[in-house]
Amino acid sequence: MEYKQQQVIMNNIDRLLDKQGIKRSTIEDALSISRGYLSRLKRSEGKAYTLSYDLLKKIADYLNVSMDYLTLNTFDHTTDENSLIDFFESLYSMSIEDNLFWNVIELNELNRIEDDPDYWGSLGPIAKKIERANPDELELFPDYIAKSVEDYIYQDITLWSILWVGWQSLGKGRKIEEVVYTKVNITGEVFHTYLEKINSTLYLYRVEYTDSDGVNKLSDIIEAYLVSDDENHFLCNSTDWGEYISSKLRDLYQIARDKCSDTRLNEDARKLLKQFNAN
């Protein structure tokens, strides 16, 4: 391992130890390495020991973070990127430790919702129900929505409903590379979890983007939303923010799926058992 990369890793380890209130000697004892070994890994170039892959994995497991998180150089990212990275890494660690309870909306449920206006609200923050519009507002909608709206407006009908999926993430259109994408299709289960610390709910969607003609497609995209006090916030997707955040979103979606197995406890039962076992 290159010296500079090793120093980045060691600085991240020190930051996490400080954040979690763990002494170097504690982790050294836990991993059966000699006292002071972590300090020797931080010595000047030419004098430092080499950090092995096996030890890096053990340290990552002990600190409940991914190995790639330990290799992350925060100076290579913007403040917003680092905020998202820390946020998703924390959620991933909480999920591994079973301190985060994930709920799922199955894909077959979503198919039913899209066909029945009475259930549209169950799609969560990704969808918006348009109940009233006028000709001046057509420019706010993507072409495929605007054409549907026209049929109602020019018949002078004022009460109607159209489902607009992706109104926050794509809006009227989002240019990615050379293509403008206007439509979102949900292609997998939706996972959501309540974050008590910020009194908000996080939603994760697996979707596909298409252009207005349906010719160009971007598949296997994960979108993240936060909902607090009835306010919807589109956080990011796994195609605009670089490989690290893209990878972390996919990891989080996968662990949410793993935690939503049929053999899990419900949230209240889990809390009761944890309370009992802690005593």
Rank of each mutant, 00 (worst) to 15 (best):
M1S: 14
M1T: 14
E2M: 08
Q7Y: 00
V8Q: 03
M10L: 02
N12W: 00
I13K: 07
R15H: 10
K19L: 04
K23E: 14
I27Q: 02
A30L: 10
S32A: 14
R35L: 08
Y37A: 08
G46W: 10
Y49N: 11
K57V: 07
K58L: 13
K58T: 05
I59P: 09
V65L: 02
M67Y: 04
M67R: 07
D68I: 09
D68T: 11
D68F: 14
N73I: 01
N73L: 02
D76G: 09
T78G: 15
D80C: 05
N82F: 00
F87I: 12
E89T: 13
M94F: 10
N99R: 09
L100D: 06
N103I: 01
N108D: 14
N108P: 04
N108S: 14
D115R: 15
Y119R: 12
G124A: 08
K128T: 04
K128M: 11
K129Q: 10
N134V: 00
D136S: 01
E139Q: 07
L140C: 06
L140V: 00
F141V: 02
D143G: 04
V149S: 03
E150W: 04
I157T: 01
L159H: 02
L159R: 06
L159C: 01
S161K: 15
S161M: 09
W164M: 01
K172N: 06
Y181F: 14
T182L: 11
I198N: 08
L202F: 02
R206L: 14
S212D: 12
S212R: 06
K217L: 13
L218F: 03
I221Y: 00
A224T: 08
L226T: 07
S228Y: 05
D230N: 15
L235S: 04
T239A: 14
E243H: 12
S246K: 04
K248S: 08
R250A: 09
I255Q: 07
A256T: 01
C260M: 01
S261K: 01
D262R: 09
E267V: 04
A269K: 10
A269C: 05
A278K: 09
N279W: 13
